[in-house]
Design a protein around this nucleic acid. Structure first.
Lengths: 235, 235
DNA sequence: TATAATTTGTCCGTATGTATA
DNA sequence: TTATACATACGGACAAATTAT
């Protein structure tokens, strides 16, 4: 049973995407949305909060809730990005599995994944392509005690799709460090770039709603294609 | 008059920072906080939402609101970063003004800043240092119709401090694109790096609560020092 | 310029649902 | 199973900012 405010939020977002409010440039007022969806003001406001968080709208007190012209297309929105597939639903996202093996957590991985040494981990190295372009190399580790089964087949599609869609597990938190670095030879070749070229690197920790770390990964992005988008609002 | 939930949020954050809840590893329950601060449940939850957004805590339904061990020190938290000064309040942040002049918006700047061509803009180029390290070069433009006065003196301290603290203007939204690139010669020299070294670049649009763009800037970060931190929670 | 209407923001209280311990 | 603790949802009242009169 999905929460009411999420259903409302998704519905509004769909309408925005369909261009329903493009002419007005803003959403209907809260009171109108209350009548439209037959829910309480709090529910509308919680729905709207999600849209604000995702950067879809910009509420101005006394004035209205304005559609936001997102600065740039083709960006990875940090606010709804956990896995490429959800972020680029309208593009062709492919994965090429380079390595796939079951390992045991050493000291470093145990600390990163908040598990004990020796915990079984799936280690997966993938090259991911968006619309045929070499987008990112992912070095990822999944805790087998949390995600009991993975396969090359699943990895060649979307692992996150599998976890949330098939296993019905709920992703709760994702921590991410973003930095720039220099490409090593192997990574450069896979991305079709040159050694020592710049790289946009993100290191990620993904947790379920229960707080348990199930995925730790290092992503080496192609600096020619990947841009991260962060839309903040300050209260 | 600051909103009650912000006061409560700040107070809790201060307690967290002071180590008050370090032993328990979690906050008091909502009900306890309600009694403690003598406010409604909604107010506590709004206060807590801010802490979640800033990555201070991680609420687990049925279990508690756990303190979060932030992955890494020395990171720029994208969630409370608008200007370096607020993000590194415990470090020595300095600014060295390289260029300071009044310009008129050309077509490109007019589009970026959502103003008309010919609008007066302060153009400011600064090198910013954190604990004496050459951290970032900022190329920034401020709309003079919004921020009527700036000076080299103000720019050599914190412009954002001046805008929010002295002018009492409220920052509402910040859009940011993050990418990696290659350093040009001039920037490299200022940062103490070599030409063609990697750079962590962010392009920023800052708006007041009224939605008006007052600042557009391009930041060239020293890839050896700058890491961005993004803590997401998914509902 | 001043006033009223509109629209979002804050705050309260209560009840019920859901995940965890 | 029961109790605990966070999550969702309702309804009402007033404040603050903007817009229209």
């Amino acid at each position: 049973m999905k929460a009411k405010y999420k259903v409302v939020s998704d519905s509004i977002q769909k309408d925005i995407h369909a261009g329903k409010y493009a002419e007005a440039g803003k959403l209907p007022t809260e009171d109108d949305l209350i009548k439209l969806y037959q829910v309480s003001r709090n529910t509308i406001r919680k729905a709207v909060d999600l849209l604000v968080k995702r950067g879809a709208i910009m509420p101005i007190q006394g004035s209205g809730m304005f559609l936001r012209k997102v600065p740039s297309e083709g960006c990875v929105n940090l606010e709804d990005f956990y896995g490429l597939t959800s972020g680029f639903s309208d593009r062709l996202v492919q994965a090429q599995v380079i390595d796939f093996e079951l390992q045991e957590a050493d000291a470093r991985l145990a600390e990163a994944m908040q598990c004990s040494r020796g915990t079984p981990l799936y280690y997966i190295k993938r090259l991911r392509l968006v619309d045929g372009k070499r987008f990112v190399i992912e070095y990822s580790y999944f805790n087998k005690d949390v995600i009991p089964y993975l396969s090359r087949e699943i990895a060649s599609a979307s692992i996150y799709q599998y976890i949330s869609g098939d296993l019905k597990m709920q992703i709760g938190y994702v921590d991410r460090i973003i930095e720039a670095g220099r490409l090593e030879k192997g990574d450069a070749e896979l991305l079709g770039l040159k050694e020592a070229d710049p790289a946009l690197i993100s290191i990620n920790w993904a947790m379920l709603k229960s707080g348990v770390v199930f995925d730790y990964s290092i992503d080496i992005h192609n600096y020619k294609y990947t841009k991260f988008l962060k839309l903040s609002n300050f209260v």
